[in-house]
Simulated scan of single mutants.
Amino acid sequence: MRHLLAAVLLTFLSVFAQPVAAQQAGRLIAAEPMADAPPGVQAWRVRYWTTNGSGARFAVTGIVAAPMEAIPPRPRRVIAWTHGAWGVAEKCAPSLSSNFFTASAGMDAVRNGYVVVAPDYIGLGNATMHPFLVGQDTANAVLDGVRAAREIPGAAAGSSFAVWGESQGGHAALWTATATRSYAPDLTLVATAAAAPPTDLAANLREGSDKNARALLLSFALHSWSTLYGFSMDGVANRANQGIITRLAQNNCVSLNAKPKLGTILGILTIVRATKNKDIAKIEPFGTFARANSVDAARVPGPLLIAQSRNDTIVAPSVTRKFAKAVCRRGTGLHWIDMSGDHGNSARESAVATLAWIDARFNGAAPPNDCRRI
């Protein structure tokens, strides 16, 4: 135990003894080569500095991957891969998972010559509450991850990037697109791709047809927001059920291939019943906060791609389509990919088409516009 405490203390001192300039948002703290990267890929587990929407500074984690090739004469193109919901507990960080590469469709882009930057976001893999679906906090972590990757010599990452994400990561991608110009003017956003993105948060938490998934995601959101901002859950659930919401969020990471434990199943069923007729859009302060962190169609720049399955039971297709129509009304053209698979495979099902679309944007081709058929 003493050795463990000493190691933790040394880590703390090594981070916070750095000069203030070295702690600026976007600065790399460490890049540890990964021995278990796929063939043809070099990868690093990284730590870097970011800030939340209030300007507070955090040391966060992620993975950067690049082709296992000689450093090219020009900087490599970059894709920021924004992951879907893995949970809100520290242990749920994608970079800690042995299944990271197989579960992350965005890593396929390395084979196309890209550097892929995959941030964990704030609070996953680091000791603070994860700001689940909090737009600006997440966008900052993504943009600072792209900045930090440029400090890894072997990655040879450039300043031009695309952002691509699924589910929660689709929300992150759209928020990153809206924030790039103001938060990271040193970076150039080339394209934004979002697969099954939550856009109107209250509507998504209300209209997804899988009530069990809705209950778990609602638990993530309620626990995250109440912990970070002191919001009372009294208007949503009684004290006993609030305890169940907290335990569901603290103890569960999302795993598409694992069966949930009996306690998790019972907890989810309890929250399904407890929130059956509850709409957080009408429960303050959650309603106002959900609206503030929904995606404003008027602020999302093009070129833009949205991929959505008509059979998605978690992100309601009607909500995504409504958002896409709002984007089109604002005069921003978008490419729409219509799919038929399940939610968990949204990015994988659309990966080939999405990567081809991103390639074309980097190559300067005119983007397609599907607004007339949405």
Rank of each mutant, 00 (worst) to 15 (best):
M1V: 09
L5V: 13
F12D: 14
L13T: 15
F16E: 15
A17D: 13
R27N: 11
R27K: 14
I29C: 09
V46E: 03
T51G: 06
S54R: 03
R57H: 11
R57G: 10
F58G: 00
G62T: 04
P67E: 09
E69C: 07
E69W: 03
P72K: 05
V78K: 00
A80F: 02
W81F: 11
A85T: 12
K91S: 06
S95V: 00
L96H: 11
S97K: 01
N99P: 07
A103S: 00
S104A: 04
S104W: 00
I122G: 01
G123K: 01
N126S: 12
N126H: 12
N126P: 12
A127N: 15
T128H: 11
H130I: 01
T138L: 13
L143T: 02
G145W: 01
R147M: 14
A148T: 14
A149C: 10
R150V: 06
A157W: 02
W164A: 01
G165T: 01
S167L: 04
G170R: 00
A172K: 09
S182P: 05
L189F: 15
A191V: 11
D200A: 06
L201I: 07
A213Q: 15
R214S: 10
A221H: 08
L222H: 10
S224P: 10
L228K: 08
D234Q: 07
A237T: 03
G243V: 05
L256P: 04
K259H: 08
L262G: 05
T264G: 04
I265M: 13
L269Q: 08
V272Q: 06
K276F: 04
D279P: 03
I283S: 09
P285C: 12
T288M: 11
F289M: 07
A292D: 15
D296C: 15
A297G: 15
T320A: 10
R321C: 11
R321H: 09
K322F: 07
F323A: 05
C328D: 09
T332S: 07
G333Q: 03
H335Q: 13
D338I: 11
G341K: 01
D342I: 03
G344H: 02
S346W: 04
A347G: 15
R348L: 00
R348C: 00
T354V: 02
L355E: 08
L355F: 10
W357Q: 10
I358P: 01
I358A: 01
D359A: 12
F362T: 04
A366D: 06
N369Y: 01
D370K: 06
